[in-house]
Amino acid sequence: MSDVPVRRAIVTIRLPEGLHLRPLTQLARAAQSYSATVTLQKGGQTVDAKRPLDLMTLAAGCGEQLQLEAAGDDADAAVEAIVRLFESDFADGSP
């Protein structure tokens, strides 16, 4: 188990309306394209980033920080892509 690559990062929500429906589905879609497990943590709550329904229950608002964690062979790429999504404020638009 110890040889599974794990990557972590802190992401900040800068969207004025928080992590609302459109960005969270973008996020889930991005996470789903990697084989690594991807989770987001807020406070004590950890959710599966591939599940939009789970992400919704985070109710993450503007300015909040989340801990991103990916575990698996493509963990690096997954974290990189998701961090980029957050940094671009989910700009690519394709939901």
């Binding site: 599940r51 939009p52 939901p95």
Partner: peptide, 17 residues
């Protein structure tokens, strides 16, 4: 507006759902 339905689709396709 299309994106609203796109989001609904994502919710429904939630793998664990």
């Amino acid at each position: 507006y299309g994106a609203i339905f796109g989001a609904h689709l994502q919710l429904l396709m939630d793998p664990k759902l």
